[in-house]
Design a binder for these strands. Structure first.
Lengths: 339, 339
DNA sequence: TTGTAAGCGTTATCAT
DNA sequence: ATGATAACGCTTACAA
């Protein structure tokens, strides 16, 4: 396409201004705050915008106003469906408030997270949402200096950077373990992801041990396992525990799709659940309710975490709130036939 | 924090320049193309950057150079795990090439897609990736005028906007249907999502019917169903077909998690698979291989679609390629015990 | 209600 | 190898 002045390229605000016979400032007002402009001018501007196919340049706008409508999000893994609901929640709220989402993936590495945070700050994002709660010192320093508001939502940390929106992994794990104890199970196995690299797993282990103590059950090291995530890994954990020195009467799988893998392995071997061993899961995958038998699990507020994170961030950005903030969202136990 | 001149706020390039005793232009060169600058200057700039905690402002950079390193992606649903692998693939490649990803969600609506595209163009993205292949006329017009390169990857469309990276939904559906016919099944049911709103489902229906004809099997309208996605929906589809006027000996579930729901329903009812009815799925969810019996399915190049989309887009952006392009990625049939 | 002028923080371009 | 100057396209601040 070609503009009337013969130059090619995208139309700029001054092309619109010229056509509508007003200044660029008036065009700017007509677009961002129509009430500030006379109806006549508003109409002429709208018509000119249409005629030249004007698409505002937000880079220029943001540079000039020192305000952007972009939120940066770092998750450990985009592919992991657990994070997907949270991202969906964030996206829903942002869209309603006319903000954009930039997303990056740390691959569970703090260094990659730091790189992503730097890239976001370079884009002058209006806010950050970080799934993880442990960061490199450099990342923390950059965020501090930038003054950009941040929400963390991996777990309820005691010393947040700024705001936290999550549920308590420790409480949830404790609640499920107590639930099993109350049902009469005495040798409760526990399988999680590696705690050394994962604050969430650490909290879940703490909750498990706290519950054992509370229920007056001894802690058996042989009943606690750390595994990578995945279906096959869940099956393997099941077998290892069942063939170990202390045979559990129930196993709580506090990580990823481990419980699903274990449940399917029981089905393959024809082991009755909970006759041979009871199985409990940590996350509310739809599927857990459709297995045979359906699996007891925790219902975690994944979508809600996303929504609330976006909301508190926007509140802060738009000056409706200030200061640290911790939102402790609630979880539920969904009791099913597997326990 | 406070800068040496007493002003507060983020450090700018001129703060770095002043401290390193060079011009901003030299700082700019030292950062973007270090080879163009003497080793001495390079070191002084690096030191100054560190000292003031300088984070470059890419908004200003992009405005000035008319180049951005942001790619916009629109998917129908962020939450849907099928798209998650593709997003992961895109993200992997972009990170390696120092580009950023903006993501938006159309909720399967063309109008929402148009809004997302407009927002991306306002941010002056360097390229677009659209999962869907049908767009509003306004969206098409905007993209055309902007000159921004685009990749579509929902299905292999005959009339792409620009570039396409996908597999052929029609071929894949045809291949699986023929596979079932070759195994000796004569009354092959077919369940997909609603074709009216989904180009992918349309293509899959076409493939199914083409295969029937090729195999010399009659098309039975009663054997073809359209359902919403979801586990429960798959179970319902199974029951409807099994209780319908023409009882299938095999069912091909060409949508979402429908096959999983159906397989689990068979398990609940104790129906032997494939004794009572054979089941085939369309997508390679990990889980399908772990069900009892494991389910025959198509292995689709989800991750690869993401990677290649990002690659062809970057090739175009960086001037290594031009003109339309269609990448037809390959799928495989994974034969398992359910058929 | 509308306009003018001066930036926002970079990079392109042309000098030296 | 380095620097001066003028954009990039918009908004802020002030003026009329």
């Amino acid at each position: 396409m070609t503009r009337e002045d013969g130059k090619s390229g995208a139309a700029r605000m001054r092309d619109v201004a010229r056509m509508a016979q007003v200044s660029t400032m008036t065009v700017s007002r007509a677009l961002t705050d129509p009430a500030k402009v006379s109806p006549d001018v508003r109409a002429r501007v709208a018509e000119a915008v249409r005629a030249v196919g004007y698409v505002p340049n937000k880079l220029a706008g943001s540079l000039s106003s020192s305000r952007s409508r972009i939120i940066g999000l770092v998750v450990p893994s985009i592919e992991n469906s657990l994070f997907a609901s949270t991202v969906q929640g964030i996206s829903d709220v942002l869209r309603r408030h006319d903000h954009q989402l930039m997303i990056a993936d740390s691959g569970y590495s703090m260094e990659a997270e730091e790189a992503a945070i730097r890239a976001f700050l370079e884009q002058r994002v209006a806010g950050l949402i970080l799934h993880d709660t442990t960061h490199t010192p450099a990342a923390v320093e950059m965020i501090r200096r930038s003054g950009v508001p941040v929400v963390e939502n991996g777990t309820l940390v005691p010393d947040p950077l700024d705001m936290v929106v999550s549920y308590s992994n420790q409480d949830a794990s404790r609640a499920m373990t107590l639930h099993l104890a109350r049902l009469g199970y005495r040798r409760i196995g526990f399988v999680s992801l590696h705690a050394a690299t994962n604050a969430r797993s650490r909290d879940r282990q703490l909750g498990y041990r706290a519950a054992l103590e509370e229920a007056g059950l001894p802690f058996e090291p042989a009943l606690m396992l750390e595994m990578p995530g995945g279906l096959a890994s869940g099956a393997e954990a099941l077998l290892r525990l069942m063939e170990g020195p202390v045979v559990p009467d129930a196993i709580f799988f506090a990580g990823d799709v481990l419980a699903m893998g274990a449940s399917l392995e029981c089905a393959r071997r024809g082991w009755p659940v909970p006759g041979k061993v009871a199985i409990a899961a940590f996350d509310n995958f739809d599927l857990l309710g459709h297995l045979v038998p359906p699996v007891t699990t925790l219902k975690l507020p994944r979508l809600e975490i996303g929504r609330r994170s976006a909301e508190v961030l926007l509140d802060r950005i738009q000056g409706r709130a200030s200061g640290p903030l911790a939102v402790d969202l609630r979880f539920e136990i969904i009791h099913r036939a597997s326990t």
